[in-house]
């Protein structure tokens, strides 16, 4: 018969379990901090997509020129290149109507009204960092990034669970922590109740 190994006291077992939890929370927290900032900043940016373009700035410049007689597309394009002092013929062009024409250059474009002599030059510019943040957050990379984003989500889950149970005493879940936990859970529940189910 094997001699029975004495089990460590309950308090010691609990302490070593908490030590592991703290280590997981700390190291996972450090690991996902950068990506959490990326997702948070991008999240705010794309939440307001209806009010702005979170990826690009569209610089628009109004220009005036001596009206061009509406004729064939090539004639109008040649006249606009000269009158608007454009850097040579456009890569592409298209007439929307007899007097409205679009000229496309590499990375920018012009919408002109040949009859009224007005034009709008539009140049899109990527928003610094935000474009990259959104690219990752909205998973436009796809492929392996999808799996990495899943790992990140699991890491956040681990952070949430370990964060809830990590502290003991009056600051922990048994103390004031439960009220914060309840409050945090109630917010989405109330929103769901009023905006979806009632």
């Amino acid at each position: 018969m094997m001699p029975s190994v004495p089990r460590p006291p309950r308090r010691r077992r609990s302490r070593s379990w908490r030590r592991l939890l703290v280590a997981i929370h700390r190291d996972v927290g450090y690991s996902v901090a950068a990506l959490t900032i990326v997702y948070a900043v991008s999240g705010i940016a794309v939440n307001h997509m209806h009010d702005w373009n979170p990826n690009y700035k569209l610089a628009r410049e109004s220009r005036r020129f001596d009206p061009v007689e509406t004729s064939g597309r090539d004639t109008i394009v040649a006249a606009l290149v000269e009158r608007l002092d454009l850097p040579g013929p456009p890569v592409n062009s298209f007439r929307r109507s007899p007097e409205k024409i679009e000229l496309f250059y590499d990375g920018w474009s012009i919408s002109a009204d040949a009859a009224s002599g007005t034009a709008i030059v539009e140049r899109p510019r990527e928003r610094l960092l935000l474009r990259d943040f959104n690219f990752l957050h909205l998973n436009h990379a796809k492929g392996i990034w999808t799996w990495l984003a899943d790992v990140y989500a699991l890491a956040l889950l681990a952070l949430a669970v370990s964060g809830v149970v990590i502290l003991r005493g009056p600051q922990g879940l048994a103390g004031r922590g439960k009220w914060f936990l309840l409050g945090g859970a109630l917010v989405p529940l109330v929103i769901l109740l009023f905006l979806r189910y009632l």
Binding site: Y105, P124, H140
Partner: peptide, 9 residues
């Protein structure tokens, strides 16, 4: 699907 503005032209 999000089309970028540089798709113009």
């Amino acid at each position: 699907i999000v089309f970028p503005p540089e798709a113009k032209g």
